[in-house]
Write a protein that binds this DNA or RNA. Sequence first.
DNA 1: CCTCGCACTGCAATCGAGTGCAGCCTGACT
DNA 2: AGTCAGGCTGCACTCGATTGCAGTGCGAGG
Lengths: 345, 345
Amino acid sequence: MPAVPALTLRDVADAAGVHPATASRALNPATRGLVNADTARRVIKVAEHLGYRPNPIARGLKTSKSSTVGLVIPDLTNPLFPPIVRGIEDVLEPAGYSGLIVNTDNDPQREHAQIELLRSRQVEGLIVATALIDHPLLGRLQREGVPMVMVNRRPDGIDVPSITPDDAAGIELAVAHLVDLGHTRIGHLAGPATTSTGVERRKAFLNAARDRGLDADPALVITCESWTEESGAVALRQLLASRPDVTAVVAGNDLIALGCYDVFAERGIVCPRDISVVGFNDMPFLDKLAPPLTTISIPHQQIGAEAARMLLDAIAEPERAARSVRLPLALVVRGSTAPPLDPTG
Amino acid sequence: MPAVPALTLRDVADAAGVHPATASRALNPATRGLVNADTARRVIKVAEHLGYRPNPIARGLKTSKSSTVGLVIPDLTNPLFPPIVRGIEDVLEPAGYSGLIVNTDNDPQREHAQIELLRSRQVEGLIVATALIDHPLLGRLQREGVPMVMVNRRPDGIDVPSITPDDAAGIELAVAHLVDLGHTRIGHLAGPATTSTGVERRKAFLNAARDRGLDADPALVITCESWTEESGAVALRQLLASRPDVTAVVAGNDLIALGCYDVFAERGIVCPRDISVVGFNDMPFLDKLAPPLTTISIPHQQIGAEAARMLLDAIAEPERAARSVRLPLALVVRGSTAPPLDPTG
DNA sequence: CCTCGCACTGCAATCGAGTGCAGCCTGACT
DNA sequence: AGTCAGGCTGCACTCGATTGCAGTGCGAGG
């Protein structure tokens, strides 16, 4: 979209009475030392005055840097992601980078295509938020030396930096809360087994239940098809079918918990009187639900920001060892949890 | 992120035994006619076989086309935008375009900087979703011939294509619904006067109220500082202070309606028994609220898709006249509206 | 007074693809 | 046989910024 004269380095150089090469050096902090301080100052002043903005395309061609990173997420429409993306953009921008977002819909085919697309756009690195466990593609990229960091999931097998919430601690918090309330028959609606968060939380639930000597009936944990309300609803129906005596459920995430609300409505179950529910993620507006959902809160924006910072580091120093961080979580008690009707459990 | 050999046009040309220029022409459908059909086929085959992907940076440098468009939105975190963005991306992608998202936080300063940034990244067009009315910048861009389309707002003064929900019809729907229920003292919590949607909906409310002979006390319409829950809450408190007898309120959008919920909670007002509320936008999960919010539903994703299509058109044929579309809305009746306690109004 | 070194600046090539123009070759027509 | 047209192909330059290398000029030291 030219239309505007489209200022080039040459224009600045002419205006400052120097050669474009000199102007380039003067404008670039890294090479500024090579040019006379007065000249540099003059060039910079002229550049500012003219409102010169280097053309990143041209620069990218020569340096093969695009100042762009790829953001691979399942679906922007999932309320989990916007805050993360926002966190990412907020640190990318001051660093002169931009993020290219692609949605994979959790479809490996599509994901592959999208990542290819990003690569062909010369992104310098990838922030990957898809949660699929089996990931030959990522392994390959990793081996090819593509800088990347994962958010929200811990890849196994490959040594990639990741930023994840401390799932185990979160589930622990949820279970502890329910136990404190007096529950002993607690169900778990786990996320899909194809996602790392799904299996990690499931495992954490099992551990927590064992540690506290809760009812360990395998029928108490149901695995959902996907991270959606619908799946949550069918999972809860299934749970209720085999164990109508559950008094509380730990949902794999908030969406699944929302599915429970639907089942409550259709069966006249009163939450939290009849059954308590705790979610995971603390997506927006949960406090406006009926009842307000007790959940585990995740510092989404912070996760995004941290991920972006790590990616920039990795781009700057590709050699540095992968470092992974787990962010602490917090239990947010709202209205969907209460002591069980029958305190004997 | 090379790491991979990074195939160039030259490699393909060498492998096919032709000059890079010929390879370029063979690969480009538009110029393919200039080269012998057999040669073209051969080049194409070699390119595929090698897995050649043209470098968009280099191409962009020469053609000054980046295959990129800018998406200017206030805040991705606002649930209104993700579906729109998704709709946009879904049409951009098959067309070989990508979207660069920037958040302005409704700050003109920041918006200016962000748009400059987009321009320096050579975006070919802009989809602007910020709702500020006063917009010298957009006018200038328009004059400079930057293709753009606005979503969710009708710019006044400048002749830019736009995709907007039919605000007036939506408000009309809301008011009609409340009147049918028997309300006569209906308040309006308008969006900020600096936004076109704010003033349009306000005007529409006034018209609808007049047409139906409702109480036209100016105290019944309050203008919010911003499109947020907090502002909605303060506006409602203000409304209640001067007109404690209102039985229903039309909120400028869902967030403002949510702010009303907070005031209800703090004052023990029961919705919809004491006061009915209708929102605007139908953001996700409204059906899970207590009570589920009656609102006006907008085809977000469709808006995004339509906007992207129009922008692509505008890029392809800059001369074509600006065309604007208003998308129809629907009233979604849920639990936050009911007949007034005192049916005499 | 000459030479050497250093600080600075300019030249020209480069990144990868696109494109106007010139030139080649072949086939057809006179 | 000679000429011309037209179809293909290749050359070389361009886009805008970066960068290795070759100067230039100045001051200092011999």
